[in-house]
């Protein structure tokens, strides 16, 4: 698959790699990975079976994690997918999620994203005790985990570009 056929790729859109550059050639060599990353973004953000987390909530949580990682353009991109203005507030890491009844979810997502090493069994029990099903806990973790991957690939590509060989 050539990069030209990847009409929709968050990574390529936001990394802004110039065609013909050594970085573009490296990405061309991993075009399957770029394509599969996009397929996974779609599966995480817009699954057919969304469980308790609507596509709006998923986009807001994705934007929240992007913001926690200082990836403003990526956060804006996900915010653009949110239809419900009340849900959109969750994208702001300074909002607790209390208004939406999602304080426990926001607390969990923030900790998993930013203080990963400190997460323990108690954090999972807290979610379970507040009525979140095990399947929905796994879904939250996948949203968080995918975003943690995507922000780092973007940060790395940006550094490659800035220091361009």
């Amino acid at each position: 698959m050539s990069m030209e056929t990847l009409t929709k790729s968050t990574l390529l859109d936001l990394a802004g790699i110039a065609g013909g550059s050594p970085i573009a050639a490296a990405l061309e060599g991993r075009s399957n990975i770029v394509a599969m990353t996009q397929t996974t973004e779609d599966a995480v953000l817009k699954p057919v079976d969304a469980g308790s987390w609507s596509h709006d909530v998923r986009a807001a949580l994705a934007a929240r994690i992007a913001a926690l990682n200082g990836e403003g353009a990526l956060a804006d991109r996900y915010c653009g997918l949110i239809a419900d203005p009340e849900v959109a507030e969750l994208a702001d890491p300074l909002k607790s999620g209390k208004v939406q009844g999602m304080e426990h979810v926001c607390d969990f997502m923030d900790k998993v994203a930013a203080q990963t090493r400190d997460v323990d069994a108690e954090d999972i029990r807290t979610l379970q005790e507040s009525g979140v099903s095990d399947a929905d806990i796994v879904r939250l973790c996948e949203i968080n985990a995918f975003m943690s991957y995507q922000v780092r690939v973007l940060a790395g590509l940006r550094l490659m570009k800035e220091t361009g060989a």
């Binding site: 490296a26 990975i33 998993v112 069994a121 954090d123 968080n144 985990a145 995507q150 790395g156 490659m160």
Partner: peptide, 27 residues
């Protein structure tokens, strides 16, 4: 080279992902 650096970014980022499943969902 650039291809190696890209692979390093990808493998490191991938474990940002894997760790948030393994370390969070189990002991």
């Amino acid at each position: 080279d650039e291809a190696e650096i890209l692979d390093l970014i990808l493998s490191t980022a991938l474990f940002g992902w894997a760790n948030r499943l393994m370390h969070v969902l189990g002991d």
